[in-house]
Design a protein around this nucleic acid. Sequence first.
DNA 1: CGTCGTATTGAAATCCTTCAATACGAGTGG
DNA 2: CCACTCGTATTGAAGGATTTCAATACGACG
Lengths: 258, 258
Amino acid sequence: MIASERMLSKLDLLVELTDKERTAVQALPFRISRQPAKADIVREGDWPSSSFIILEGFVATSKNTGEGARAITALHVPGDMPDLMSLHLPEMDCDVRAITNCVLAFVEHDQLRTLCREYPRLLHGLWKGTLIEAAVYRESVVNIGHRSALARLAHFFCEMMIRTNANQRKARAHFPLPLTQTDLADITGMSTVHVNRSLQSLRATNAISYDQGQVIIHRWEELLSMADFNPAYLHLPEEALTIGTDGHLKSLAPKGGA
Amino acid sequence: MIASERMLSKLDLLVELTDKERTAVQALPFRISRQPAKADIVREGDWPSSSFIILEGFVATSKNTGEGARAITALHVPGDMPDLMSLHLPEMDCDVRAITNCVLAFVEHDQLRTLCREYPRLLHGLWKGTLIEAAVYRESVVNIGHRSALARLAHFFCEMMIRTNANQRKARAHFPLPLTQTDLADITGMSTVHVNRSLQSLRATNAISYDQGQVIIHRWEELLSMADFNPAYLHLPEEALTIGTDGHLKSLAPKGGA
DNA sequence: CGTCGTATTGAAATCCTTCAATACGAGTGG
DNA sequence: CCACTCGTATTGAAGGATTTCAATACGACG
């Protein structure tokens, strides 16, 4: 996939674009870079002069605790720009690592700044993207701090189901999520042993399968309720929340108004 | 304190401003509103047409879990704009509540949008502010997910020490933090009983006192190490991290480079 | 064919929650 | 002024969720 296309389809979830704005994004000079699984892309303390958009693969932002444990603060999927914050925060406060093999497209900050200066709506879109990222963090704080191990995992799967499918035409009840149980532990703040056991309980409900890095959702409604999941915090347009039907998934419109 | 002054001193921590930009901020039409403790300021699901800056008091953003528990995702101090995200995310994904009595200054979104259009550097500053908020969430995810109860509390006190003092000339080792233990429980994701006990352990180290909503830090270095705290994620300028000396606090410059 | 990372399982230890009771101060109405 | 209530802080004890330690299994890879 071409970098500008990926960036445009992400921006389409955030703002309405004119042809002129699309052309401006297409004119951005991207530098494609392939990274193997586990590669450090950016490190805490770095002062990047460019940011990247993920074309393929999974990327995590993580921080190390004093005891040497690695905490994954967020998992990023194709279309995300995990280190966009460096456009305004000069020094990185977290590591950015490739979880799987991945393909990234880098753009110089200067290019992005020029783009933002000339096309305020694109700036608006990028800002909005970072605000949604913050909303995801907010939900993470709730998830990790206030839900049981089982619910935490279920919630994570729900979120990934939506986010990895957000720019597809047809969302599928079957999607790749090639994480180790150690990754899941670092994401959810639990031990690998307990991830293993909770995963077994989760499978035992028959709501979901998770093998070989492939998630298959069998009973979406049940998974939602186990996870206490409401997709509103993802701030996706209605279309992106209406899950297509390759399996037996229905719509995801939040229930009832404010 | 005048609203525009508060906003300017916050912005001064984020970007360098020209006199013209200062004047533009001073010209903003603020609407002052007093809120009693526990008042709902904005609710999940609302579509606000204005945002506010805190002049006095503490405000929390919170979400309710399915089991009816209230999770506080962030605590905001004077100078913060807790619902600024509504400028770009139309629907609120969390509640915003007054923790203490507080004084707020509301500005219409239209006014902010005009300001941003005419003064890109102010826009830059506001965006940067939201990015720092995201960085605080990142650290929260680490704190809640990967540290012990004692460290979690210690970390929270460290953060509040820095953030409440960031716009003072002279930081003090003594500052107000009028929270109930229930609030602390909702913030750190623990039970009130355990907050109570952890607080006692924390006091027993003689690093800190916390009574009557007043924090007194006796041994900053020790508190830092208990908390595994590094202020880099707050992205404050050097000056704001150099703690003055009313007690016996030293500088806070992060140790060693990347 | 040995090694390494990952998944799985058992058992013991511990952190933390829950339940339950008491204490204390502020505010309210008699 | 007293009795009453309510929110908050504190303590004890029991139970449960999760971690840690330790061992085994399994597949990928060189």
